[in-house]
Nucleic acid binder design. Structure first.
Lengths: 140, 140
DNA sequence: CTACATCCTCTAGTGACTAGAGGTGCAAGA
DNA sequence: TCTTGCACCTCTAGTCACTAGAGGATGTAG
């Protein structure tokens, strides 16, 4: 039960100090107890919650999704169907994003390949941007 | 040389009306002439500039990059090395983003597969988020 | 002439932080 | 004991690229 400062919590969780305070402000993290000098003092359980949040953010979950996942974690006896649904929705988003980025990559590659490093009026980069009809990928 | 209203410009370019005004505000688009009743009145050249901007935004270029690309388009005799560099930088960004999304997708798939739809305390989704060591993909 | 869509300006809100100002707490070295 | 200096505190405002809404003016079809 040894308490740690916000700076130490930041170092151990990988979440920056102002971000920790921000998470407290929006209610993702409980208000920690304070030292005599009014400084935040965290417990190990806060640390694992912060790590949970950081990991979920890295996976691209929005704060509201994380709020839902955390409330599930806080009530471990209920069904995990909600957690599953949140993760599945995120998976679909990621798959769509990958598809559109692949199309985009192809288009950018064409632009870059077509550029003969001459003058702008012969540049394929500018040309493709100016006239969408030049673009072979119409997925966007 | 027939003038069009902002609504028509929005319909033809695919850029929403408030967004057109926003682009004018940040200087991506010149201030158009006005009707007697103070309404914006656009020319075909504004329309192609808007299309250029929309296409570049769809390709994920930031406004500052678009500003640079537009200034190149306005001076077609200069070298297109800058345009090439901007497009290449964007291509590298996109490739990185795709790589990290692929890792993420794999991790989400594992989470979803591992979920036996039981109770939260046996749920792999929650477990993986809580303990990063559970995660087989450490690229993030 | 009257609806009604479209236009105008302006301010404020979005998400998820980040930066900075202006001040206090705390631990270590001289 | 003093002081240096880092870490901490609160609060406000800024980021990006828009989007929403208030409150009012203009333009057009019937």
């Amino acid at each position: 039960m040894k308490k740690i400062t916000i700076g130490e919590a930041a170092r151990k969780s990988g979440v920056k100090v102002p971000t920790i305070r921000y998470y407290e402000g929006i209610g993702l993290l409980r208000e920690p107890s304070r030292s005599e000098g009014n400084q935040r003092s965290y417990e190990p359980s806060d640390l694992s919650r912060l790590t949970f949040i950081r990991h979920a953010r890295e996976l691209g979950f929005e704060v509201e999704a994380i709020r839902a996942l955390l409330s599930l974690q806080d009530n471990p006896l209920q069904s995990c169907a909600t957690a599953d649904a949140i993760a599945k929705a995120r998976l679909i988003e990621v798959e769509q994003r990958i598809r559109s980025l692949m199309a985009l990559k192809a288009e950018l590659e064409m632009m870059v390949e077509g550029c003969g490093h001459g003058r702008v009026d012969q540049c394929r980069v500018i040309e493709v941007l100016a006239d969408h009809a030049e673009c072979r990928h119409h997925g966007h």
